[in-house]
Simulated scan of single mutants.
Amino acid sequence: MLAIRFDRFGGPEVLTPVDVPVPVPGPGETLITVEAAGVNFADTFQVDGSYLSPDLLPHVPGGEVVGRTRDGRRVLAKVTHGYAQHVVARESAVVEVPEALDAAAALALLTQGLTAWHLLRSAARLRPGERVVVHSAAGGVGTLAVQLAREFGAGRVLAQASTADKERLALELGADEVVRYPLEAGADVILDAAGGELFEHALGSLADFGRLVTYGNASRTAFAALDPARLSRLNAAVVGFWLRPTLARPGALREPLEELLALTLRGRLRPVTGTEYPLAEAGRAHTDLLARRTTGKIVLRP
């Protein structure tokens, strides 16, 4: 079968199409024929070595797929080697999805949807009426976080994005306005995956008892040391978030995912889908993602 593998760390150029055996499911696992595999920013960190050690090479990346099991179920699944024509998944990490739901839309609800859900519910512990700022609001997580913040009762939702077109998309999805730092009124919750200078602007714009949730470092800039005294003066908190350990908690995957699917099927949540690439062109998908040329959910089609 066709899979995408890298044998050394680097940029998108190290992603190589290879022919490998079809995996064999073990106890409690199921084999899935892949309809589409999701591409996430975290995948680029696997490829450049930020997430993996050399002893795990060679490696097939990819953490999510939509596909069909041997018994005919159409499923959405968390996996560990998703850039392939066939994958195995734990039955506990599989959720059935309706035939009518587009594969890219379903994939948007898995890593990005669960991230947005947990950022607001588990990390920020959003309360009704609070003022929320979403950085990278036209991205996979951001487009869903803007909508979920409104769904979960935020008083105002402010969007930050890198281009005018992306700002317009965030406004179409329900953001009240585009954010400009420094904020005059401050924010109760700020969601940041960029790091760097944007993180510093956000930290200085928190309202009393505000929470800045950091869940990535797309700027690839080293974080400055956080002075606890500064947080005391701000009367604020910085909260770190990573989805992988979160999903190990009981009830952290299936229940939120079922809520996201239900909201989507009722038309209350609109997953934004982006470009689709052939599986063999995974390197091009990573190149476009790193260059910020993409919007919404990117998928690979075997």
Results as ranks from 00 to 15, higher is better:
residue 162 S to F: 08
residue 136 S to F: 10
residue 97 V to S: 01
residue 171 L to V: 03
residue 288 D to M: 04
residue 196 G to H: 05
residue 208 D to W: 07
residue 135 H to A: 15
residue 129 G to S: 11
residue 201 H to P: 04
residue 45 F to R: 08
residue 160 Q to C: 12
residue 152 F to L: 14
residue 82 G to K: 00
residue 283 G to T: 13
residue 191 L to I: 15
residue 291 A to P: 03
residue 287 T to R: 07
residue 123 A to M: 09
residue 192 D to M: 06
residue 282 A to P: 00
residue 142 G to M: 05
residue 232 S to G: 11
residue 55 D to I: 00
residue 81 H to L: 02
residue 172 E to T: 10
residue 45 F to D: 14
residue 23 P to R: 00
residue 165 D to M: 06
residue 166 K to E: 13
residue 292 R to T: 15
residue 25 P to K: 09
residue 245 P to M: 14
residue 32 I to N: 00
residue 100 A to M: 08
residue 138 A to L: 09
residue 86 H to S: 03
residue 92 S to R: 04
residue 27 P to H: 06
residue 233 R to E: 10
residue 32 I to E: 01
residue 203 L to Y: 02
residue 238 V to R: 01
residue 40 N to A: 15
residue 190 I to F: 08
residue 153 G to L: 10
residue 271 P to C: 13
residue 171 L to Y: 00
residue 269 L to C: 14
residue 32 I to P: 00
residue 115 T to S: 12
residue 200 E to A: 14
residue 197 E to W: 06
residue 251 G to T: 12
residue 162 S to R: 06
residue 140 G to N: 06
residue 51 Y to F: 14
residue 141 V to A: 14
residue 79 V to M: 07
residue 160 Q to S: 12
residue 123 A to I: 08
residue 86 H to M: 00
residue 18 V to K: 00
residue 150 R to M: 10
residue 169 L to Q: 02
residue 116 A to S: 09
residue 256 P to F: 15
residue 266 R to T: 15
residue 186 G to M: 10
residue 244 R to D: 11
residue 241 F to Y: 11
residue 93 A to C: 12
residue 152 F to W: 12
residue 9 F to K: 01
residue 244 R to S: 15
residue 116 A to I: 11
residue 26 G to E: 05
residue 106 A to W: 02
residue 289 L to A: 08
residue 150 R to G: 13
residue 302 P to Y: 00
residue 103 A to Y: 01
residue 265 L to S: 13
residue 59 H to G: 04
residue 264 T to N: 07
residue 217 N to M: 11
residue 28 G to V: 15
residue 50 S to D: 03
residue 14 V to E: 10
residue 112 Q to I: 13
residue 243 L to W: 05
residue 162 S to K: 02
residue 180 R to E: 13
residue 207 A to N: 12
residue 125 R to F: 05
residue 12 P to L: 03
residue 285 A to V: 03
